[in-house]
Design a protein around this nucleic acid. Structure first.
Length: 440
RNA sequence: CGGGGUAUGGCGCAGCCUGGUAGCGCAUCUGCUUUGGGAGCAGAGGGUCGCAGGUUCGAAUCCUGCUGCCCCGACCA
């Protein structure tokens, strides 16, 4: 993409409403624009990152055996009356009426709808287990939205719903998603630690929040330092093997880890002093098992092997991609701007022509641009007639993993500069070597 | 939902107290110079001063009401 033809509205000054670093940087880098409190338009650069995250989330959901569908944002109130949540949900739910004065709502989540879909088609235990997910916009009318997309009212959520015949099956489904989440966050360049969450009236040990450690995190968390080194399950792990999945779960829940709400001070202080990690954290995922909470009242039942009807055992699994964009920035930035992990960067490399209009740099850039694109690398080519300083500042701000800087000085030696954003490391290479280094 | 702020060009702000018809920096446009870490000079365009009433010869400025947005707290993916 040529920057001269792109839409990248960089701000030099920080809008005053932005408090936390991810919000500031997202506004400055032209990723989002606030349209109302807690409601944002995603500008091209932001959308690219969001789509990259979605793609990784999808791959890992599919790998774990979940199946994608897409449910609407607007739901009928009747569905929620069936589960009893229409009255329970309170003002967080945005309620609307259609032209026929029917009660509708902008979905804050989809348990009711997925249960309705399931019960409409599935009759036999032979169709289980089943895990359906979608990635869709949700709306929760927060009293006080803040921190940009970290705590918006409209937000994108991947929510998966598992259906099993019995509790053992449900536990396996839970463990699959647990494993998929570990892989997903790792691929996004994050270290996420599963922490035991409140299970509410269901009880049991099957609810976890996945917390990313970041100094600017919203809540205080406590964990054993071993979590920082645990190995993430490999891509070829057998999701169908219940004992393998249970092993992952046991490992990753075997040490102390809790958010402030669930914190057990005595237990934490019982750990060796050098194993105690007390840090700030951001919740990026939440999974839970809730049995027949919805399948019971909504009559989502299957015939078991014994011919008897039983309500299905359900669980749900959420990840917030829009929030993740901010969380990744919180965990990965410096004074000059964002530092994207390779896997979610909006472009892989920024190509800066330091002297637009100079035959030498123009030709060298055109050549590099074509070759990198041909090699399948996403390039943002800064071909604007700007001063070098402005280009450096822009590239650092938007945080592309690689920068290729082409100026007359280097070119005189047949070299271009290749800079790694994360480390600041730079080297002068021939265009051939530069392409090889970045594409190879 | 309680408490506190704030609203002036795309962004950041001054002007308001003491009413006289809007200004600064950045950004944008034009020209010349400049070109390896957010350039310089000269010129230009862009604002019904959040909205609605009121006071006044005259309101960004004073009064009343409303709304948006932000911050702290309670709440939350």
């Amino acid at each position: 993409m040529r920057l001269s033809r792109y839409f990248l509205p960089i701000l030099r000054e920080t809008p005053k409403e932005a408090e936390i670093v991810s919000h500031r940087l997202m506004l400055r880098a032209g990723m989002i624009r606030q349209e109302s409190a807690g409601i944002y338009a995603w500008l091209p650069l932001g959308l690219r990152v969001l789509n990259k995250i979605n793609a990784i989330v999808r791959e890992e959901q599919n790998r774990a055996g979940a199946v994608e569908l897409l449910m609407p944002t607007i739901q009928s109130a009747d569905l929620w009356r069936e589960s009893g949540r229409y009255d329970d949900y309170g003002k967080e739910m945005l309620r609307i009426k259609d032209r026929h004065e029917r009660d509708m709502l902008f979905g804050p989540t989809n348990e009711e709808m997925i249960t309705e879909i399931f019960r409409a088609y599935v009759r036999s235990y032979k169709d289980l287990p089943l895990n359906l997910y979608h990635i869709q916009w949700k709306f929760r009318d927060e009293v006080r939205p803040r921190f940009g997309v970290m705590r918006g009212r409209e937000f994108l959520m991947k929510d998966a719903y598992s259906f099993d015949l019995d509790e053992a099956g449900a536990r396996h489904s839970y463990n699959r998603m647990f494993t998929a989440y570990l892989r997903t966050f790792a691929r996004l360049g994050l270290r996420a630690i599963p922490m035991r969450a409140d299970t509410g009236p269901i009880g049991g040990d099957l609810s976890h929040e996945f917390i990313v450690l970041a100094s600017t995190g919203e809540s205080q968390v406590f964990c054993h330092k071993d979590f920082l080194d645990y190995e993430v399950p490999p891509a070829d792990i057998d999701f169908d093997d219940a004992s393998v999945m249970q092993g992952v779960f046991d490992t990753w829940t075997g040490r102390y880890a809790a958010t402030e709400e669930m914190h057990d001070k005595a237990a934490f202080e019982g750990l060796p002093a050098d194993a105690q990690v007390s840090a700030r954290g951001i919740e990026v995922g939440h999974i839970f098992y809730f049995g027949t909470k919805y399948s019971g009242p909504m009559k989502a039942v299957v015939n078991g092997p014994d011919g008897k009807e039983t309500p299905v055992q359900m669980g749900s699994y959420g990840i917030g991609p829009s929030r993740l964009v901010a969380a990744i920035i919180e965990a990965s930035h410096d004074d000059n701007g964002i530092v994207w992990p390779d896997s979610v960067a909006p472009f892989h490399v920024g190509l800066a022509n330091l002297k637009v209009g100079d035959a030498g740099t123009d030709a060298a850039c055109a050549d590099l641009y074509a070759r990198l694109e041909q090699a399948g690398v996403d390039v943002l080519y800064d071909d604007r007639d700007e001063r070098p300083g402005a280009k450096f500042a822009t590239l650092d701000l938007i945080g592309l993993p690689w920068q290729v800087i082409v100026g007359p000085k280097g070119l005189a030696d047949g070299k271009v500069e290749v800079k790694r954003r994360r480390t600041g490391e730079r080297e002068m290479l021939s265009p051939d070597d530069a392409v090889r280094k970045i594409a190879g």
